[in-house]
Amino acid sequence: MAGLVLVPWIACTRCGQVLMRAHARESWGDLSYLARHYVITTQNRATVLLRFPTDSADAAFASLQHACPGAP
Rank of each mutant, 00 (worst) to 15 (best):
N44V: 03
I10W: 00
V7C: 04
A24S: 09
G70V: 13
H37W: 08
R45C: 03
A24D: 01
W28D: 11
R25S: 08
T47D: 13
W28T: 11
L64Q: 12
Q17I: 01
Y38T: 05
M1S: 12
R36W: 03
L49E: 03
C68T: 13
N44I: 01
A57N: 01
I10G: 01
P72N: 08
G16P: 11
T42M: 05
D30V: 09
T41N: 06
M1E: 12
T41F: 02
V18I: 12
Y33G: 10
A35F: 04
A67Y: 15
A62L: 15
D30F: 10
T54V: 12
G70F: 12
V48K: 05
A2Y: 04
G16C: 02
L64R: 14
C15V: 07
T47P: 00
V5M: 09
D30S: 10
R21W: 06
V39S: 00
L6I: 08
S56T: 00
G16L: 03
L6K: 10
W28S: 15
C68Q: 11
G16K: 06
S63L: 09
A24M: 01
A67H: 14
Y38R: 01
L31H: 03
V18N: 05
C15W: 02
S32M: 02
A2Q: 12
S56H: 08
P8K: 01
A67M: 14
R45L: 02
I40M: 00
M20V: 11
L31P: 09
Q43I: 02
T42F: 05
P8M: 01
G70Y: 09
S27I: 14
V18P: 06
C15Q: 07
A71K: 05
W9H: 15
A24Q: 03
S63C: 13
V48S: 03
L49C: 03
R21D: 08
R25H: 10
A35R: 06
C15S: 08
A57G: 05
V39K: 00
A67L: 13
L50Q: 14
D30C: 05
S63V: 07
W28Y: 15
W9S: 07
L31E: 02
Q43R: 14
S32V: 00
G3P: 14
P53H: 12
L4H: 10
A22M: 09
T54S: 13
R14F: 07
P53V: 08
L49M: 03
A67E: 15
R51P: 08
V7Y: 02
L50M: 09
L50H: 14
M1F: 12
I40T: 03
T42D: 05
Q43V: 13
G70A: 15
S56Q: 04
Y38F: 12
R21I: 08
R51G: 14
P69L: 06
G70E: 15
R51N: 10
L49Y: 01
S63R: 10
P69F: 01
I40Q: 03
A57K: 04
H66A: 14
A62K: 11
L31R: 03
A71Y: 07
I40N: 01
L64G: 08
D55S: 04
P69E: 09
V48Q: 02
H66Q: 15
L31I: 04
V39Y: 02
A22V: 09
L50N: 09
T41G: 01
R25T: 07
A59D: 00
L19W: 04
H66I: 14
N44A: 11
T42S: 13
C68E: 08
Q17S: 09
L34F: 12
T13N: 14
